Computed example of a mutant assay.
Amino acid sequence: MNQRTVIGLDIGRSAVKAVAYAEGKKYPLSFASAVSLAIPITLEQAAVAAELETVTVNGKDYFTGETARLQGGATMSAGLSDDWIRGDEYKALVMSAMKRLGVLCVPGLADPYVVVGTPAALFAHQREELEKVTQSIVKGEVKALSQPLGAYLSFLLDADGLPLKDNIRSANGRTKSWAVIDVGHFTTDFLLMRENTYIESKAASCEGMNVATDHLMKTLTGKGYKVSLLDCEQALQTRTIFHFGEKDISAEVEAALSHVAARITAKATALLASDAASLDGILLAGGGAMIMKDRLHADWQNVKMVERPRMAVAEGYCRYGKSVQLKRSMAESKEPAHV
């Protein structure tokens, strides 16, 4: 029976999300996608805390996550470019995720089955390179999928990697159709599965929540606030900023969110308006799902959020990996015995 450890790994530009499954147990993980060159830390307690979040890539030590933000002075999330998988930042985040899973005592990390992904618009020309780069770090088998497909699979498959029949077919046997809008930090990704068939022309990406972060930072800087991009990312959720005391910036946040929401809505309309009414649902995923839900639902009443939208891509990747392992186990059990 195939018992290989499975890891769904969503290396986002705002946060790294991972879901590992091994020996009947699930291990979720999330940390900020911040990376900086490591510096010496003299205080023992702080040094011990930083060691967990320190990795070595190409002979250089890097802080990741909160240590990068606090000790390394990282002022923004990593990898806000199309080719970031070629750089040390991506490798550092993958390595950090694997190190943290090791600390969680996840078994089978020496040879796991790992599923990773890219934005929809980059998938075709980055898939092979992404698999190669990731495999050089995880040392296991690596499969790349598009990010919105991961969100779709979190909805299509159950926790054991088996198809959820009610999400695939209607009571009268009709094969259902779904769209996905995955609102991430770097990109918002779109996917259309017409009768469970991938529609190539509808796979696309547009701006993500970083546009709102940039807009908010420019607005606050213009008002004399000294803030970083990471401060502004957090402010999109809290609607406050700390500047000589905590300040309410609800109006500025709403203006920034409306700015990016208008772009996402325009792209969604261009891609899906002709299909929306005939779909069983439009699934929202990603860290910005809650922000977009009401805005999109005003036009399309079949918009619905997937469960735990921020973790949906990693969860879907893990469920896909479990499905692959299940199929392999079934194939092994059918092989004739050798005398």
Rank of each mutant, 00 (worst) to 15 (best):
Q3L: 05
R4H: 14
T5H: 05
V6C: 11
K17D: 14
A18K: 03
A18H: 00
A22T: 06
L29P: 09
A32V: 04
A32L: 12
S33Y: 05
S33E: 08
L43D: 15
A46D: 14
V48H: 00
E51Q: 13
L52N: 11
V57P: 01
E66W: 05
E66M: 11
T67H: 02
A68K: 00
R69W: 09
L70Q: 12
A74V: 13
M76L: 08
S77M: 14
S77F: 06
G87N: 08
G87M: 06
D88H: 04
K91C: 08
K91E: 12
K91A: 09
M95R: 10
M95E: 09
S96A: 13
V103H: 00
D111T: 07
V116C: 08
V116T: 11
V116G: 00
A120R: 01
A120V: 04
L122E: 09
E129I: 13
E129K: 10
L130W: 00
E131N: 06
K139D: 13
V142D: 05
A144W: 02
L145C: 07
P148C: 14
F155S: 02
G161P: 11
P163C: 15
I168T: 05
G173H: 11
G173N: 12
R174P: 04
S177D: 11
A179Y: 03
I181K: 00
V183S: 10
H185Q: 10
T188Y: 14
T188D: 15
F190K: 03
T197D: 11
E200T: 14
E200A: 13
E200Q: 06
K202S: 15
K202T: 14
A203K: 04
E207F: 05
E207T: 06
E207K: 02
G208S: 13
V211K: 02
A212L: 06
T213Q: 04
H215M: 11
L220G: 09
T221M: 11
G222N: 04
K223D: 15
K223R: 13
L230F: 03
L230N: 02
E233N: 03
A235L: 07
L236A: 04
Q237L: 13
Q237C: 02
T240W: 13
G245I: 09
E246G: 03
A251E: 15
E252S: 14
E252V: 05
K267M: 15
A270G: 15
L272R: 08
D275H: 10
D275I: 14
M292G: 07
N302M: 10
R310W: 02
Y317P: 04
R319A: 15
K322E: 09
L326S: 06
M330K: 06
M330V: 08
A331F: 00
E332Q: 05
E335F: 12
P336D: 01
